[in-house]
């Protein structure tokens, strides 16, 4: 499986249509991926929905990059007609991660966005009911961020060389 960068047609279309928002594209393990600026992401997805048949939202999730001081949001769309998958990524500032909601295009984004808010603290502006979903409501942290380690850091019997990442 050699990674050959044959650019998908859809990337070319998006590059032309959204010149100002386009950041980069890659093809990790054959999966078409494109990174955009966060401002117009909803209109980009709306465009894909209306004209390019990407009408199925497979999944949506957050990724925390403490080194870059960024929180990424990944959208995965599926064109069921042509059976093509597409991943879109945006990077948000760690201190104030904020992006417009996708519930206007996909009702399915409702709980996925609530989950992303719950675990990463990404605020989806315009979301009808942005509350915690899996964790208790009075929790004050966003547990999937990397600054909250899973294990007690004061323990000395387990050192990172053997048991950590």
């Amino acid at each position: 499986m050699e990674e050959v960068l044959t650019e998908d047609r859809i990337i070319t279309v998006l590059k032309e249509k959204f010149v100002d928002d386009f950041v980069s594209t890659e093809l990790p393990y054959g999966f078409t991926t494109a990174t955009f600026k966060s401002e117009n992401i909803v209109s980009i997805i709306k465009f894909l929905y209306d004209t390019e048949q990407y009408q199925y939202l497979t999944t949506l999730s957050g990724i925390h990059y403490p080194d870059l001081k960024k929180i990424a949001v990944m959208y995965q769309l599926h064109n069921l007609r042509e059976n093509k998958r597409l991943r879109l990524k945006i990077y948000l500032a760690e201190e104030k991660p904020e992006v417009a909601t996708l519930t206007t295009v996909f009702p399915a984004a409702n709980w996925m966005e609530r989950e992303t808010y719950d675990f990463f603290g990404v605020t989806f502006t315009g979301h009808p009911n942005l509350k915690r979903i899996l964790n208790v409501e009075d929790m004050i942290i966003f547990p999937m961020r990397k600054e909250y380690p899973l294990e007690d850091q004061t323990r000395e019997d387990k050192n990172n060389l053997m048991f950590g990442r």
Binding site: Y29, F31, T33
Partner: peptide, 9 residues
């Protein structure tokens, strides 16, 4: 372990 990003369903 290789670096990478994978989706499998």
């Amino acid at each position: 372990i290789p670096k990478g990003e994978v989706y499998h369903s």
